[in-house]
Design a protein around this nucleic acid. Sequence first.
DNA 1: CGTGCGATTGACTTTAGTCAACCATAGTGG
DNA 2: CCACTATGGTTGACTAAAGTCAATCGCACG
Lengths: 239, 239
Amino acid sequence: MLIRKLDSIFDLDEEDRQALLDLPVTLRDVAAGQDIVTEGDEPSQCCIVLEGLTNWYKMIPDGRRQIVAFHLPGDIPDLQSLYLGVLDCSLAANTPCRLATVRHEDLKAICRARPRIAAALWRSSLIDGAIFREWILGMGRRSARENAAHLLCEMLVRLDAAGLAVDHQFALPLTQIEMADALGLTPVSVNRALQDLRAERLVAISRRSVRILDWAGLKRVCHFDPAYLHCRSALANAD
Amino acid sequence: MLIRKLDSIFDLDEEDRQALLDLPVTLRDVAAGQDIVTEGDEPSQCCIVLEGLTNWYKMIPDGRRQIVAFHLPGDIPDLQSLYLGVLDCSLAANTPCRLATVRHEDLKAICRARPRIAAALWRSSLIDGAIFREWILGMGRRSARENAAHLLCEMLVRLDAAGLAVDHQFALPLTQIEMADALGLTPVSVNRALQDLRAERLVAISRRSVRILDWAGLKRVCHFDPAYLHCRSALANAD
DNA sequence: CGTGCGATTGACTTTAGTCAACCATAGTGG
DNA sequence: CCACTATGGTTGACTAAAGTCAATCGCACG
């Protein structure tokens, strides 16, 4: 899974792949709703998502919550902890998750030995940054409807790149409450925005699963341009 | 300037510093308001800000604009271009700027030769990411007033860390229009938010210069916690 | 002394938030 | 197997925050 991902964002050679396979990892299962790591922690390992959906969130002391990122299978959500020390937000599981954990020292060693892998990991953290920037744009300048549409577009492309979308359809195991926390809205607004998109026959949403009915139309609604995802999904191009 | 910055975020040794000093750089001056690099470019060099204030911005085709980051002297705004290829946003100068540019190949070479420098640069891009996350929280869950206060707090700590703030006072060469584009608000709302903060005697703002009158009070307004900046400024601690 | 940009203000509109009820569904325990 | 419960989705009525529009003010600059 990790290799598939890194391969997709950087050209690795056979030795790189072997080195990755030789990394000592520990498996860890996390229940839905649980924190994987928590703000203030200083982890000595990183995790790779094998299965499930995870999110980073931040809280304001008075209880307001904001999800700042989602991570899919193949992602290394807490790669930042490798060089950042204490975490500035918490990572939680949206669904039951299976993770592989790798110790920082092993990761640092492989980066030292194989610059190509270091570059791939660095690049992956830069892509995370690019997604953050797009989210900032969305929260600052897009309407609720546009930003909801944009999130669906982003999820489709990312899930597709991870091989988790078929025919413009994918599982999106998020409640509207979680979507609201990601979009900086209230659940009521999210509900109305989604209804809107459904009424226009752009998407069909049922029981945690999304089908994009009119991909071109949905992209038009939110001016979606997948360049920021820096990935090679077919959906990221013409279509 | 670059060394000062990297030193502040990572422990370099004498040889690292010498290697950085030996990097071939080109100086470049940019006028206020000019783009330094533009969305869609594929730069073959990075720039280091020596003097001036720069910002990354994204546009929605219909003209809406969002500033997604500011970069101060010592920062390497487009470090991302080292591994990301085509830019997903544009970098502009808020003020006349003096930049030092370094070719990607030289930067990659120094990273290969001196892992400590690679780590410092990587870390610096991760800090950029941490700031993005905090901005997402702000735009999603903070009121106009809170987020304006938060931006002032962030700027104080960052400028202080760069040696550009004295006694809780610093130059902030931004119009309210630019501030609005950074906060995801309209200029009118920014004006009102700032008036609010002034009326409470938390800050004094005059001709592009800000003086924090009540640092503790200002932090309280926006629940400012500088941990996300991952820097060693005195202001980042107790105070 | 104009000119023009940016800051400020007031009146009004729009969007999203709030509150509260109700519905639908899935899982639980009897 | 079915009623019971809880969670999440939906809806409507109302509120609040921020946006819009437009006029005015203040300054720096040519």
